[in-house]
Design a protein around this nucleic acid. Structure first.
Lengths: 338, 338
DNA sequence: GCGCGCCATCGAACCGGTTCGATGACCGAG
DNA sequence: CTCGGTCATCGAACCGGTTCGATGGCGCGC
């Protein structure tokens, strides 16, 4: 069931079969017909490993994802799905590599084994050893998110700082004077996770610019933590009237805490942030928020990666998306004496 | 940077390098040392395609997932994560194939291109053409979920029928007399999606056995549908006092509907079903439910697949898991005159 | 001291494709 | 009729590993 067998049955040489399939040299119509008949009859398809070896490319992209132990957020899930779909649209397969920190067998296999033509890296830190590793391996790659000093690397990202800034201005315009940022977990912040740090910076800058009192808390990525966290906010800073968050997993807990405290959104409390569209719409009431364009970001990452693979010497490109805030119904004017 | 280069620098032949790396023939300690030094210095790793071609195996597993357009449920996400992790534990990579229906280029590439040593298929239907396709391609595969007549195929699954039956008995024991099954979407049921159909059968059998009045509804996989669906239940069958569900995505909507109707769980209404553990615990109050052991199922699928690959002639094996119901706090005795 | 056997290593073939240079048949122009 | 050029096809080399049979050197036993 290999190309030699096809050639034998069609009465031609192996190279002729190869050319008939690839079209890289002309083959007479009659011969093509005969070869195609044999192929259809035997259900032949070329061996991917052999082809990869000969061509020097695997027609496969690597996608480095956080290990399953760390649950994926909705936004991350959106990335994975859109990358896989975008790759499939180009007839490329996606090889998954669960990678946490530095030395990871799966990651190393991907990088040095020439198993993939390029890599998409997600959930990267401000200082991420994997970026360095890929650079020196001279394997094309695109990161979703960007390191502090991207240098010559290609990336796509959402401008968390700008989006959080916009959320703060929105709240300030509504008259809020003391607002809180519910960030991702303290571990992620300590590890140097870009979105968390850039959100914090944007939040502090914007609140300062508008003269608001700023509070920030870190919150583990789970509903229970969201509940605890919100109750702590109410006790510690009772005059806070609005929250900005990028923590999707905490939302169900925040919702419960609001309910338990008898606070109605947006009458008594405003809530906004950067949140996957589906979750923003599932919230009650639907969240006014910057929807992370996960699908677009994933597709863009694949496009950039393919451009980089096609022209290895090209100048690095990147895309910093700043989606508009979708006005839904979770923010309102601050109530005096609220 | 290939094996020939290593051999040249170490002053040995290519086969000696190969044997030194694989250990399949003895190589003197001094030579091994020299080879390892050169390899460490150059950072050499064997080319995966070449190795796959020579060995006839790719050290890669295929995972067929629903296309991204259909959002993954929490349970499905658990499968993907655990399969990837379990494969990584065996130093295997995972190739993703988004596949919906019948003819799918990505699926065909996986099946006939000898890109993978075996395939794990999830989200299968009672009659699934892909199972047939894999069988005739004589490529080892394991399904998560099982077709109606599994024949000689290997599979792992959760016994939805038995679990739903247990839920019904639990409610009957608590005195409920009219209960509703909130199923997955009507499209899935129509397509022949196993869990949905087996749940419905189990539900009808169990309610009949206990003399309960049974109601069933299909509900799209989203919060809004859950809300609408529950409100319809309240109008149409006002005396229903408990619900059983396998629809995770609808839960936030159900929660909101309960709240809107002023029903307190479990005092006024009982809720149970088959639900991912995390979601059951995020619910308010935490759901008494059969937690789908997604992680165990994924690991098991990989184990069975590897067994099948190792011994192609082995008799088909399968595993039907029936996890216990976790008693949390969403079910209670029916209130008279409720 | 000679032959035997073992140990380490080598060379060549092979896996299944792609690609390049060469070859032969055929056609039209001179 | 011959020569040049095109077109279709072929054969061989190559991609980078693995594996099998062969070989050379060495130590040991008799």
């Amino acid at each position: 069931m290999n190309i030699g067998e096809i050639a034998r049955r069609a009465g031609v040489s192996r190279s002729t079969v190869s050319y008939a399939l690839s079209g890289k040299r002309p083959v007479s119509a009659a011969t093509v017909q005969r070869i195609n008949d044999v192929i259809a009859e035997l259900g032949y398809r070329p061996n991917a490993s052999a082809r990869a070896l000969a061509e020097g490319r695997t027609r496969t992209l690597g996608l480095v994802v956080p290990p399953a132990s760390r649950r994926l957020t909705d936004v991350q899930l959106g990335f994975v799905g859109s990358v896989v779909d975008a790759a499939a649209a180009h007839d490329l397969d996606v090889l998954l590599s669960p990678s946490g920190g530095d030395h990871d067998r799966s990651f190393e296999r991907i990088v040095t084994g020439r198993r993939v033509d390029g890599v998409i890296l997600m959930e990267i830190l401000l200082e991420d050893p994997r970026v360095e590793r890929l650079s020196q391996a001279s394997l094309p790659f695109v990161t979703i998110g960007h390191v502090e000093h991207p240098g010559a690397s290609w990336w796509v990202d959402v401008d968390y700082g700008a989006l959080i800034t916009r959320c703060v201005h929105h709240l300030a315009d509504l008259g809020h004077e003391e607002v809180v940022l519910i960030n991702r977990s303290a571990e992620l912040v300590a590890a140097g996770y870009g979105p968390a740090l850039r959100s914090a910076t944007g939040f502090l800058d914007a609140t300062a610019a508008r003269g608001l009192t700023a509070r920030t808390v870190c919150c583990a990525d789970e509903a229970a933590a969201g509940l605890a966290c919100f109750e702590q906010i109410r006790t510690q800073w009772p005059s806070v009237t609005a929250a900005v968050t990028i923590n999707e997993a905490a939302l169900p807990g925040v919702q419960r805490a609001l309910h338990r405290a008898g606070l109605e959104v947006p009458r008594d409390f405003s809530l906004t942030g950067v949140i996957a569209e589906r979750l923003a719409e599932d919230f009650h009431p639907p969240l006014t928020a910057a929807d992370v364009p996960a699908v677009e970001l994933g597709r863009l990452a694949v496009d950039l990666l393919l451009a980089q693979i096609a022209d290895a010497g090209a100048a690095p490109r990147h895309a910093l998306l700043e989606p508009p805030i979708s006005l839904r119904s979770s923010t309102g004017a601050r109530r005096r004496h609220g």
